[in-house]
């Protein structure tokens, strides 16, 4: 199962990187979002998925699943949600103000 999740993480990284390297602003923001999801998958996969019973729920099992990676992922998801929301608003404002969402045209004018 870990292998499968790792492959999914790799696919997400690939798509995310491809989108980040494109020119459209919305594509880049989606790419960033996918990239962070890849990070979450990786965090889950490298720290083990399910090694035993649920943590802190009874004393029946000897082996417990480590709850910490899931807590980290939850925190990270919340942060990346806020960042995606912010960058979407930012992208919209930029489109309204500057009239373009093409990064090629957002380079800046050397004479300004």
């Amino acid at each position: 199962m870990e292998t499968f999740i790792t492959i999914i993480a790799g696919v997400l990284f690939t798509i995310g990187t491809y989108l980040i390297l494109s020119k459209g602003l919305v594509r880049i923001i989606l790419g960033l979002s996918l990239f962070t999801h890849g990070v979450h998958m990786l965090l889950m996969a490298v720290n083990g998925l399910k090694k035993g019973g649920a943590p802190l729920l009874g004393e029946g099992t000897d082996v417990y699943t480590d709850p910490l990676p899931q807590a980290l992922i939850l925190t990270s998801i919340v942060i990346s949600f806020a960042l995606t929301a912010f960058s979407l608003v930012l992208g919209y404002r930029t489109y309204v103000e500057l009239g373009t969402d093409d990064l090629e045209q957002l380079k800046g004018d050397p004479n300004e």
Binding site: I20, L25, L90, R93, T94, E97, L98, G108
Partner: peptide, 9 residues
């Protein structure tokens, strides 16, 4: 706005 986008990404 233009510079914020680069900074944020």
């Amino acid at each position: 706005l233009r510079e914020t986008i680069k900074y944020v990404i």
